[in-house]
C-alpha cells in the first residue's frame, strides 16, 4: 500500500504541472458562472428554485469528464508517445501496479477537482444571487445537505465515467484527439439525454459500468495491450 501511494505521488512529479494547473483554473472559473449564464441566456426555468439550479449544476459539472481525458493524455498517451513508458517499465515495479497507480492518480485528481468545482460553483452562484437575485424561491438549509450528497455521488460518477476512453483509445490505440472527442461525446450524451428521450439514470449507470470495465481491462490486460 505504501508503495502504491509512493507511485501515485511520483505520477504527480512527472506531470507538466503548469499545464494542468492552468487547465483546472479555466475549468473552475468557467463552470462557476455557467449557472448564471444558463438562467439568464438559455432558460429562466433553470432558476425556478435552488433545486432546479442544483439539477442544472449536475449537468454543468459533467464538463469535468473532459479534464479526465486530458489527464489520460498526459499520464498514459504522452508516456507512450515520448517513450518514457519504457523507462517506467525498466523500473522494479510490475506493470499492473504501475497502471493502478496511474489510474488512482487520475481518479483522485478528477474527483478532487470536481468536488472543488462543485463547491466554487455553489458559493459563487449563491453570492451572485445575494447581490443580484436571479434564483426564485427561498434557500432551504436542507438544500445544503442535498447538495453535498449530490456533490459526492456526482463527482464519483464523473470520475469513473471519465475513464471510458482509457483502455481502447488511451492504452491500446494511444490516440490523443479521439480520447478528447470521446469525452466530449459522453458529456453531450449526458446533457442531451432528456431531449433524446433517454433515461438519464439508466444512461449514467451504463456509462459508469463502461468506465469501470475500462479501468479493469486497463489493469488486467496491461501485459498484452500495454506492450511497447
Amino acid at each position: 500500500m505504501a508503495n502504491l501511494i509512493k507511485l501515485i505521488l511520483l505520477e504527480g512529479k512527472k506531470l507538466k504541472r503548469h499545464i494542468i494547473i492552468g487547465e483546472v483554473i479555466i475549468y473552475w472559473i468557467a463552470l462557476m458562472f455557467l449557472p448564471l449564464l444558463f438562467i439568464k441566456q438559455v432558460s429562466a426555468d433553470f432558476g425556478n428554485s435552488f433545486t432546479t439550479v442544483m439539477e442544472l449544476n449536475k449537468a454543468i459539472q459533467t464538463g469535468l469528464i473532459l479534464f479526465g481525458a486530458s489527464l489520460i493524455n498526459q499520464v498514459f498517451i504522452d508516456e507512450y508517445k515520448n517513450k518514457t513508458i519504457s523507462l517506467a517499465y525498466s523500473y522494479p515495479i510490475n506493470r499492473k501496479q504501475l497502471f493502478t497507480a496511474k489510474i488512482l492518480f487520475i481518479a483522485l485528481l478528477v474527483f478532487l477537482v470536481t468536488i472543488i468545482s462543485y463547491t466554487l460553483t455553489a458559493v459563487s452562484t449563491y453570492l451572485i444571487d445575494q447581490v443580484h437575485p436571479f434564483i426564485m424561491g427561498e434557500f432551504n438549509p436542507d438544500d445544503i445537505l442535498l447538495y453535498f450528497k449530490d456533490m459526492i455521488i456526482r463527482s464519483f460518477q464523473i470520475t469513473v465515467i471519465s475513464f471510458i476512453p482509457l483502455y481502447f483509445l488511451g492504452i491500446w490505440k494511444r490516440l490523443t484527439i479521439p480520447t478528447v472527442l470521446c469525452a466530449i461525446l459522453i458529456m453531450q450524451l449526458l446533457n442531451f439525454a432528456p431531449m433524446l428521450n433517454l433515461n438519464l439514470d439508466l444512461l449514467i449507470v451504463l456509462l459508469f459500468l463502461l468506465g469501470g470495465l475500462s479501468i479493469i481491462l486497463s489493469i488486467f490486460k496491461v501485459k498484452k495491450v500495454g506492450e511497447i
Binding site: K14, N82, K83, T84, S86, S90
Partner: peptide
C-alpha cells in the same frame, strides 16, 4: 518476470536512446 522485477534494482540501463521527462531538469 513481472513478479520478480525487483531484481532490476541491481541493473542500470540506457536502451535505444536516452529517454527523460524533458520538461524536468537533469537533477529532477
Amino acid at each position: 518476470t513481472e513478479e520478480t522485477k525487483t531484481v532490476l534494482k541491481r541493473v542500470g540501463s540506457v536502451i535505444e536512446y536516452p529517454i527523460f521527462y524533458e520538461h524536468l531538469t537533469a537533477i529532477e
